[in-house]
């Protein structure tokens, strides 16, 4: 049963991952990404990490990819792009080299770590423990007691990122004559 679930999820993930790269249409690529995320969520459920699966779907599929789609739709890049034109000439050979290198590294890591991979992790058996909410309890304990400092720092980092984005998105107030013109224009159109 576990093997069957794993194979189904793996097929989902692979189809999605290949789709993200191969589909020339950005929206289709984003949809393929959702398929991959769902496959990962299925794997989480298969490992009794129900809460992680839910968070995976809510945060990644529900918020982040929605944002991707938003940007794609609003910026109007939702047209299939021709793959013939290559704006930066070195990019493709470089990508090929990096890809092969990454594949080689992965293969080497798997060959090296065969024995470790074959063993079952120690935490997995206790992840659920048959109790409904043990998942979320363990996670909360870890996040809010053991690693509370790192957690808070991360949230501060996010706030800084938001403030930075707002600052970048705002136009400077005194950027010359063109600004005031644009400002009055938009004002007029708003009215």
């Amino acid at each position: 049963m576990q093997l069957f679930v794993f194979i189904c999820a793996a097929v989902m993930i692979l189809i999605g991952a290949v789709g993200v790269i191969v589909r020339s249409h950005p929206v289709h690529a984003a949809l393929s990404l959702i398929l991959t995320l769902f496959g990962v969520a299925v794997l989480f459920v298969a490992q009794d990490a129900h809460f992680l699966a839910a968070v995976q779907v809510i945060v990644y599929a529900g918020a982040i990819v929605v944002l991707f789609l938003f940007v794609i739709m609003l910026l109007g890049v939702d047209k299939a792009e021709s793959l013939r034109i290559d704006p930066v000439k070195v990019q493709r050979p470089l990508a090929a080299i990096v890809g092969i290198g990454l594949a080689g590294l992965l293969a080497a890591a798997i060959v090296q770590g065969r024995d470790t991979l074959a063993r079952r992790g120690t935490g997995i058996d206790t992840a659920d423990g048959g109790v409904h909410d043990s998942n979320i309890r363990q996670l909360a304990n870890d996040l809010f007691s053991n690693h509370v400092f790192a957690f808070e720092i991360t949230s501060v980092l996010l706030v800084i990122a938001v403030v930075g984005t707002v600052l970048l998105a705002r136009r400077p107030r005194h950027s010359g004559a063109s600004h005031t013109e644009a400002g009055t224009d938009t004002k007029a159109s708003v009215k």
């Binding site: 129900h50 699966a53 809510i58």
Partner: peptide, 25 residues
Amino acid sequence: DPPIGVLLLLALSSIAVYGIMLAGW
């Protein structure tokens, strides 16, 4: 009665967004 319970509601309502979004697009 899945272990994630109510979170399933949130997950599914975030999937429902796609239905409407993609339909319009």
